[in-house]
Design a protein around this nucleic acid. Structure first.
Length: 771
DNA sequence: TAAGCAGAGCTTTTT
DNA sequence: GCTCTGCTTA
């Protein structure tokens, strides 16, 4: 087993072979984090400290989970099948499937993705006659998800104003609707699982006793509910909950307080550090400097809370970087040093300092794109593979102009993000038929395909059906006999169609899929459609997906132990269907084909996290864009932007380019921006300016040269002020006018003050000095 | 029932 | 400025 430990550096070795105790591993970018995690598991198993069944390893993405399983199989001659290694959602799903009765769910409960969830909410609002101007479905969706991610049921949400009260009512109605339809959304998987374990003591004990070691990847990305779930499984929650409310757990501690629990006993294992004799050992790996998902509920404070609540007394820091050259790491360290709330870490390498960081200032976004194309061409000539070059940007909208230039130049590229396989409309249609066969109460699936392909069931028929269903308190499908007349006849024909597909449940999954695509009329519909070729090909691909899904070796299989407790046996084949539908919801599939091609990689900084490239272009480094203007008002927001910049810089192995443009088309208007403060935060000696270094607070070039004033952009009363003008303000310092509106005493200008942010100023009030 | 047009929104995203 | 959504129109 010694080979496991070969070539580990001292810190990695310490982490891997840590005695049984809670641990926090601060793993810097490129420091071998995944290797430590997998080797730790292999070490625990091969030294017989734990059996494979005693391991619970949690990740955020399917990709990370798969990688962990693959590496583990390479390290150990064991069957990883059946091991509890997966995403939070995947593992919760597994638990809920095994104990669906105790969780109050139907056996074949379906999972709503965000699009399904939104459709469900829209349907709900319509049924309740809610003004969707006042309560936009998207807002409500965010509201509901945010509550669930904090562990709050509608009954537990405190509402201080009428609008929130109403939203809470709608949240409650949504909960009921989902329950009636037998569907769960993503957040529900976690919340429902948490509640199941919390309320069912025998079950909780069972899993607490089973999982002796809990390992968590990307711990800095956990939200409040996920951390609470981990504590529960680790056997820490009952003690930990009242152990002193932390800032992050504020929402939860309210609930704990209202439950009037007696003061909790001191944590076990006191006096022996973070010992875990009576509970599972938590091994949390994360990097607070790479926490970039605060906006979706990730609670960076969980790291500090974990350290305190689990009494972690030595944090292991993995600071040796095996990815980047020294200059790149120095730049990253210098940037992140400006953040105040850090656990602290400094990356280093013995690979040498390498090349300087190249900086380019463009007059416009178009020029920036053209320059990148030229530079990429030169890199290609020098033998760099295109797939080893990444173009990063802060927001998706920036990709368009880059794509335009690349397309004109004939350079192959691949854009990350966008529609994924199981999110395509034709695939979702086919899946909706399958879902209806599995569970006819699934109104979301019903509404999706009742009139697709068109079969004369219009809005009026649906409305009549909805009324009937509401009156009967039943699903849409079940209410069909209630609808009279012609509409009722068409609906009955649809019901008969679904029923006619049901016998196909006895067929093997691929044949079932084929059958449904045929009988539903989907194939015929796309055959007749002008642009239907690609959709037909995707439907064929769905068949392939089903075939390989059934054949898949490492597919999660429910262990007999758990399957037995679920009561009546599932029919083998409908189990395949249920698993496939779950797979479709939880793993929406690759973004796009063409992974094998030698193409330039275009993506947002967020999507680049976890990846690495020989050459990285970080474009659009402008105040207002990166850091984004919506983030600079609060220190918290700015620090997250800075971490994002840190992530961007640390993606590069050998060469890093930073670029920015004086003018950029944004929301249909030309924007004038200052260079990002993040460039200033890098020590000058690490930089090599490819254009004359930008003056502080100004441009190397005259703005006027790049700008032709249009009548609209002239500020009428503005004493010579116009868009693009550099100005000074007593409090905000230097800035540039990016927009103007109104006239006379109403005239206002929008000024980008760089570090002081973007401001709208009334000219009659603000004293602006033209520079 | 499909196409065509007006209107809104527009930072980042996995499950 | 572009793209997606939803409503109106032939």
């Amino acid at each position: 087993m010694n080979h496991l430990l070969e070539n580990l550096n001292p810190e990695q070795l310490a982490a891997v072979t840590l005695p049984p105790q809670h641990a926090l591993i601060l793993a810097g970018a490129g420091s071998g984090k995944t290797r430590v995690l997998t080797t730790r598991i292999a070490w625990l198993i091969s030294t017989r400290q734990v059996t494979p069944q005693g391991i619970l390893a949690v990740t955020f993405t399917n990709k990370a989970a798969k990688e962990m399983l693959a590496r583990l199989s390479a390290l150990l001659p064991i069957n990883t099948r059946g091991m509890w290694i997966g995403t939070f959602h995947g593992l919760c799903n597994r638990l809920l499937r095994a104990h669906y009765r105790d969780a109050g769910l139907p056996q074949l409960f379906q999972i709503l993705d965000i699009a399904d969830q939104q459709a469900a909410i829209k349907r709900l609002l319509k049924a309740l006659n809610v003004d969707d101007e006042k309560f936009p479905p998207r807002d409500l969706q965010h509201f509901i998800n945010a509550q669930k991610e904090q562990g709050l049921r509608s009954a537990a949400v405190e509402a201080w104003d009428d609008h929130t009260r109403r939203r809470v009512e709608l949240y409650a109605a949504y909960e009921q609707q989902c329950q009636r339809e037998g569907v769960v959304d993503f957040a529900e998987l976690l919340l429902r699982c948490y509640e199941l374990l919390e309320r069912n003591e025998p079950l909780r004990r069972h899993y607490q006793e089973r999982f002796r070691h809990i390992l968590v990847d990307e711990f800095q990305d956990t939200n409040i509910l996920q951390y609470r779930w981990l504590k529960l499984l680790a056997g820490h929650a009952e003690r930990g909950r009242a152990a002193g409310p932390s800032q992050g757990a504020a929402a939860l501690s309210m609930e704990a307080a209202s439950a009037a629990e007696p003061p909790s006993p001191p944590p076990l294992g006191r006096g022996m550090g973070g010992g875990c004799m009576e509970c599972a050992c938590m091994f949390a790996v994360g990097d607070d400097d790479q926490s970039i998902y605060g906006f979706r509920g990730a609670e960076i404070g969980n790291m500090r809370d974990f350290e305190r609540e689990f009494q972690v007394d030595n944090i292991i820091r993995l600071e040796q970087n095996y990815r980047s050259h020294g200059n790149i790491l120095d730049a990253a360290n210098a940037i992140i040093k400006n953040n105040e709330k850090r656990l602290g870490k400094n990356l280093w390498t013995d690979a040498g300092s390498g090349e300087p960081i190249r900086v380019f200032e463009a007059m416009s976004d178009g020029e920036e794109a053209r320059w990148i194309v030229e530079e990429v061409r030169a890199l290609s000539r020098d033998g760099h593979a295109r797939r080893e070059i990444a173009l990063l940007y802060r927001s998706n909208a920036q990709s368009r102009i880059l794509e335009h230039s690349l397309f004109s130049a004939g350079i192959p590229y691949r854009v990350y993000g966008g529609l994924r396989f199981f999110e395509r409309q034709e695939i979702k249609h086919a899946l909706a038929y399958l879902r209806l066969i599995a569970n006819s109460d699934d109104d979301t699936a019903f509404a999706r395909v009742v009139n697709f392909p068109a079969r004369g069931i219009g809005a009026r028929s649906i409305e009549a059906l909805q009324d009937a269903a509401r009156a009967a308190g039943s699903s849409l499908f079940a209410a069909i006999p209630q609808v009279p007349g012609k509409a009722g006849a068409s609906l009955a024909a649809f019901a008969a169609l679904i029923e006619s597909m049901r016998p196909a449940l006895d067929l093997p999954l691929p044949e079932l899929v084929d059958h449904v695509v045929e009988l539903s009329g989907l194939r015929l519909h796309y055959l007749n459609e002008k642009e239907g070729q690609e959709r037909l090909a995707n439907l064929d691909e769905l068949l392939n997906a089903a075939t390989s899904f059934v054949a898949e070796e490492g597919r999660e299989v429910m262990e007999p132990e758990e399957a037995e407790s679920t009561g009546e046996p599932t029919g083998e084949l409908s189990a395949d269907l249920a698993a496939f539908l779950t797979h479709a919801a939880l793993e929406a599939g690759e973004h796009q084909a063409g992974e094998g091609d030698d193409a330039l990689q275009l993506m947002t900084v967020h999507s680049a996290k976890g990846l690495e490239f020989n050459v990285v272009f970080m474009s659009g480094l402008e105040e207002g864009l990166f850091p984004h203007e919506n983030s600079v008002q609060e220190a918290k927001g700015l620090e997250e932007e800075r971490r994002l910049m840190y992530v961007a810089v640390t993606r590069a192995r050998q060469r890093l380019y930073l670029s920015f443009a004086q003018t950029r088309m944004l929301h249909g208007q030309t924007r004038y921006s200052l260079p990002s403060r993040f460039i200033d935060e890098i020590p000058g000696e690490l930089l090599k300016w490819l254009t004359p270094k930008a003056k502080k607070g100004g441009y190397a070039y005259e703005v006027a040269d790049a700008f032709t004033p249009s009548p609209r952009s002239r500020v009428s009363s503005g004493g010579g002020l116009r868009v693009g003008q550099n100005v000074a303000h007593a409090r905000f310092g230097q800035g540039v006018i990016v927009n103007a509106e109104g006239s006379g005493s109403d005239a206002r200008v929008q000024v980008n003050f760089g570090p002081a942010g973007m401001k709208w100023l009334a000219l009659s009030v603000a004293k602006l000095e033209a520079l």
